[in-house]
């Protein structure tokens, strides 16, 4: 089953990266959402899969006897899910806010911070002594 989930995760990565490369910023946002799931699934699979036994110590015991699901990746993913959501919310609002200002969600038109035509520092006329 791990192998299948590794392929699933790889497919999600591919889908996400394809979307991240689109000009439409909303597709970019969708790519981010899929990326979150892809990473989480990958971490989960890497911790190996154990069916139906959550890492919870049964009542009255001090340790778990026998097999149990790996708690470490779960802790990591729990954090990651929440952080991804925060990232998504912020990105989404940024895209929206940008749209209200520039009226576009085309990534290739958002070049104000790095204009194609630079201020060329070298064009000033060179003056040489004497």
């Amino acid at each position: 089953m791990e192998l299948i989930l590794a392929v699933v995760s790889g497919t999600l990565f591919a889908a996400s990266f394809y979307l991240l490369l689109r000009r439409n910023l909303l597709r970019f946002v969708i790519g981010i959402i899929i990326l979150g799931n892809a990473v989480n699934l990958l971490i989960f699979t890497m911790g190996r899969l154990t069916r139906e036994v959550p890492p919870v110590i049964p009542y009255g015991q001090k340790v778990i006897e026998g097999a149990y699901a790996n708690p470490l990746p779960q802790a990591l993913i729990l954090t990651a899910i929440v952080i991804s959501f925060g990232l998504l919310a912020f990105t989404l609002v940024l895209v929206y806010r940008n749209y209200t200002v520039s009226r576009t969600i085309d990534a290739d038109r958002l070049t104000a911070s790095e204009p194609e035509q630079d201020v060329d520092l070298h064009t000033q006329k060179k003056r040489l002594p004497a």
């Binding site: 192998l3 995760s9 790889g10 990565f13 889908a15 996400s16 892809a38 990958l42 890497m46």
Partner: peptide, 16 residues
């Protein structure tokens, strides 16, 4: 994109 996805899967296989 498919290239990166394939790489991720390959690395995962290797790790497994």
């Amino acid at each position: 994109a498919v290239g990166v996805g394939a790489i991720v899967t390959t690395v995962a296989f290797a790790a497994l």
